[in-house]
Simulated scan of single mutants.
Amino acid sequence: MRIISWNINSLRLRLPLLKELIQLADPDIICLQETKVPDPLFPRDDIIALGYPYIAYKGMKSYNGVCIISKHPIKQSNLTRNWCNQADCRHLAIEFEFAGQTTILHNFYVPAGGDEPDPDINPKFLHKLNFLNEVTEWFKANLAHNSILVGDLNIAPLEHDVWSHKQLLKVVSHTPIETINLTQWLETGFIDAMRKITPPDAKLYTWWSYRNKDWEKSNRGRRLDHLWITPTLTPYLQTVKVFKEVRNWEKPSDHVPILLELNENPSI
């Protein structure tokens, strides 16, 4: 089972890149964030033509939006929620069968939080902290036995998830309050699959700013995108991959796709 997560930064704009990614990676399920398309305009026919007839989506005009497309049958879960009393299309949950069991897949797009890491003067940052607190409390009580959580969580929690730990401690996405809150969410019952494969002392990024034209040379990246699994799925964990080369494609997203591969027949 190959699951990709990608902040595509406009689905309709980057449909050609999605097609290229499918040819490159051949995933079973793709979770997209920042689709930026209202539901009536979702390009369902185009997605089906790419070989993904099973589709779930929540979208809005110009902002946010999440979708999950699959080669295999999926069922939209009643665990899909709106957070912080806002219908801003940041979460979608589906069910699928894996290794003879029902597995829940959560696709998240966490608020970015603006530029100023002070909730007293920046309502976007306050929203982000409230969002993290609410999802953490919810998962404490509602985490399913077999669960996967993926998405753009807009936080790089570890020292080597950013190009400079010291310089980014006061920059939104790597401040202590954010990293602590994300860790608390992870510890509701998940394992960080990316760091299960790649040691925590190795640099690992999934996002490079548009502001830096020579992004690859400077390599000032952050790991804002995540793949989490419950311990029940750890025996099936095969590999994780970051498709860094996609950042060099024409008109790319500032995020790159990340792959979680689970093997239904693990050697235990």
Rank of each mutant, 00 (worst) to 15 (best):
L143W: 09
E97W: 13
I8D: 01
K71P: 04
N85C: 08
W163L: 13
R223N: 11
L126G: 04
F98Q: 04
F108A: 05
K244L: 09
S253F: 00
H127C: 07
H160I: 10
R14V: 00
F98N: 01
F125D: 12
I148P: 09
E264I: 14
Y236M: 12
L204G: 01
K203F: 12
I148S: 02
L153A: 06
H165C: 07
K213H: 15
K244M: 05
F108Q: 08
R2L: 08
Y54M: 07
H106W: 08
L15W: 10
I121K: 11
N219F: 02
F42D: 08
F190M: 13
D161H: 11
N219V: 02
P40R: 06
K124Y: 15
S62L: 13
F131S: 01
Y205I: 06
D115W: 01
P111H: 04
T136R: 05
S173L: 15
T103A: 08
W138R: 15
I148V: 04
D254H: 02
I268W: 15
A56T: 15
V162N: 09
G65K: 03
K213I: 07
E116D: 08
H174R: 09
N181A: 11
L15G: 03
P117I: 07
N64P: 11
E137S: 07
A141I: 10
R247S: 00
M1K: 13
L41Y: 10
I68Q: 06
D28K: 03
K217I: 11
I30F: 07
L50M: 09
L13Y: 02
T102K: 15
L143D: 02
L233N: 07
L21E: 00
T136N: 05
R211T: 05
F243E: 00
I55C: 10
Q23G: 08
P231S: 13
I94Y: 02
K251V: 02
K128W: 11
A87V: 12
T198E: 09
R247I: 00
R223E: 08
D39G: 11
V242G: 00
D225P: 14
G59E: 05
I268F: 10
K58N: 10
P27W: 03
I104H: 12
T102M: 13
V150R: 04
L259N: 04
T103I: 15
L13H: 04
I229N: 10
W6V: 01
D28Q: 15
L262H: 10
Y205G: 03
G113F: 05
Y52A: 02
